[in-house]
């Protein structure tokens, strides 16, 4: 076992690298090396894919939402075909089919995948752990209001909760309502109000007073 804790590239290993090697980690190394040796993949492709995934984050979705708040034409395009609208802003979302669902005064949207863990990963990055949990997957289609309550979100009884179950080929993003008193805020500042949870529908955008909090 090496004691210098440096990888061949000279960088320190992450903490995860110092725990005992597991069967499944061994399998990952083996599959990766076999696919490279047999010419199916290259090490560079794998690194590029990891870098591309690391570059995706809720900040990308926040830019899309903020743009839709200030640009009615973009918003119309987003609601018609969210995938194309995101690509038009320069986001590489791969082959993902995306639908944007708009919150209104009468409707609050929330996204779930009951059969597995489908998530708009090519825009927002990898899903949070709770999104993949039995608890969220099971309960959101039956008692969404209780689930939202656990996220600190109470939806008034006169507002319809609309749950979207990503069962097949589509991925979803919620277009939350623009917070009050933000008419004079520029697009870049508006984007800072848009949280990951508000785009899944388990939260709302931040209030103006929380902007620099």
């Amino acid at each position: 076992m090496p004691h210098d804790h440096l990888s061949p590239s000279g960088h320190p290993y992450r903490a995860d690298d110092d725990t005992p090697l597991t069967y499944w980690q061994t399998m990952e190394i083996a599959v990766r090396e076999l696919l490279i040796e047999k010419g199916h993949l290259s090490a560079v492709e794998i690194q590029h894919q990891i870098d591309a995934m690391d570059a995706r984050s809720p900040a990308n979705g926040a830019k899309v939402v903020a743009k839709s708040w200030v640009d009615p034409e973009f918003k119309a395009a987003l609601l018609k075909d969210a995938g194309s609208a995101c690509r038009s802003l320069g986001f590489d979302i791969g082959p993902m089919h995306l639908i944007a669902v708009e919150n209104t005064d009468d409707i609050h949207n929330v996204i779930v995948c009951t059969l597995c863990s489908c998530y708009p990963r090519n825009l927002l990055g990898l899903p949070p752990d709770w999104y993949k949990s039995r608890e969220y997957r099971s309960r959101t289609v039956k008692e969404p209001r209780k689930v939202l309550g656990e996220f600190g979100l109470e939806v008034a009884p006169n507002i319809e909760v609309r749950v979207h179950d990503s069962t097949a080929d589509m991925r979803y993003i919620v277009l939350p309502n623009r917070p009050p008193d933000t008419e004079s805020l520029p697009e870049e500042e508006l984007a800072k109000l848009v949280t990951r949870d508000s785009m899944i529908g388990v939260g709302l955008p931040k209030h103006l007073s929380e902007l620099n909090a």
Binding site: R145, P157, V161, V163, H164, D165, S166, T167, D169, M170
Partner: peptide, 29 residues
Amino acid sequence: DLVRVRFTMDELWGTDAEHPTDTIEVEVY
């Protein structure tokens, strides 16, 4: 064809529904 179908909570869960007029949309082949 992949079809998005809207159901009411009332239709899906009957008397167990948390809020009968809430809805769920699901993609169905």
